[in-house]
Nucleic acid binder design. Sequence first.
RNA 1: GGUCCCAUCGUCUAGAGGCCUAGGACACAGCCCUUUCAAGGCUGCGGCGCGGGUUCGAAUCCCGCUGGGACCGCCA
Length: 450
Amino acid sequence: MSVTENKNVRVRFAPSPTGALHIGGGHTALFNWLWARHTGGKFILRIEDTDLVRSTKEYEQTIMSGMKWLGLDWDEGVDIGGDYGPYRQSERLDLYKKYAEQLLDEGKAYKDGEAIIFKTEPGQDISFDDIVYGRVEVNSDGLREKDSDKLKDIVIIKSDGMPTYNYAVVVDDHLMQISHVIRGEDHISNTPKQILLYRALNWEVPTFAHLPMILGRDKKKLSKRHGATSIYEYRDMGYMPDSVFNFLALLGWSAGDDKEIFTRSEAADLFELSKVARRPAVFDFDKLNYINQEHLKRLEPLTRLNMVAPFWGEAGLDVEAVKNSRGEKWLADALTLMAGRGRTAKEMAEFSDYFVSFEPVKQRWNADELDKDKLKKFYEFVFAAKDFKASELEELARKWVEENGVKMKDYAMPLRYALTGMKVSPGIFEVAEHLGREECEKRLKFFGLL
RNA sequence: GGUCCCAUCGUCUAGAGGCCUAGGACACAGCCCUUUCAAGGCUGCGGCGCGGGUUCGAAUCCCGCUGGGACCGCCA
């Protein structure tokens, strides 16, 4: 364990349930999780549902299952409780009211309409030290209204009785004894306002660590118009949780020693907040694809099968039937044969559908253009193989090719097409062995090649 | 308009004043292997935004400029 081990570390991810877990939120949650797991501290999930209009319980669930999908587990939260609950802001209204009234009594806040507003005093130095960004110099004189030189007071309780973000976050982070506030860089300019509140309440200010933003290809903050932003869209495209985790961890952080492919626990061991980068990172699909491919390669055969099988199903193939007839292991081994072909589970499923069914092969290819009689002799010779092993098939094929003075290519490719319907596949004799003599003969006969 | 932040290959990054002729990865290009590539191996292309300082020495420190971004909501 490293020197940064500290059981008193308490961090939180505090999403508002107004949409699915998106890439940016996942990134923030991930870095909080990494810090908690690295230090042996606690990771808390708090729901910030003070926007009555947009918050729903459904989104709350979606966000939680999104986090679970990513492999981020939490130690305290709405679903599992904890010593600092409730963990839903809408259930903590009395707390916000209590401290708002205190500020009112002390003359630090005033009422306007039904709202309670904290008075911003001019000339306050509200600089802070950020673990990632270093010293951030701010003076309260800079807290102005837009297009005006008027000082901006801070609304803490809205007219509907709900606390505002900047206020609730302070009350909750203090009461929940959050040690490190780890969040997106877009919050860096909210921090001084919160510091003012901490001071007015006479509370200790937590340590801040802001994370670089994630940008789209156009270098603008990642948003819906960049395409997939919800974590679940990545699952549906065939990316695996391990990969998305790995990829997100690499946005703004590096594990050192040029280590780019890692597991959650490896990342947790190596993670350091102080090593987080400041510059915003562009979301790069090419890199995600690569990382996913690497994880796909490293998966246990049965686990890989479980990742890929749904996409065969999606393509209309009866995976269950094959599992029943040839067994799960046979299918898993077929994917092992794919040896890294395919960057996503979906691609791997597309590239290997001929193992599940002959139907797609029939649809993709026909032998009309071929000199069938010539090929038949070759296949008859090769298929005389006693054990139908790849090495044996290849040996016979080579022998025949040599004796007849022809090119292997001209005979192996038609075989590849007849068995897979594709131009590309693993070694075709290996594919043949795995498919088995019976199935291969069936396919060749269908095309009139045997 | 104001405040704050950022700045190394196209992209993710390493780099804490000499280990830097700037390292790795992705992408791209080429070559090799070969029954195919979407697998594997090798090679290449490509970057410290600009200008001033400080220093014997700067990608690293300071200032300015330029360029990007975030925030300035009774959203979070």
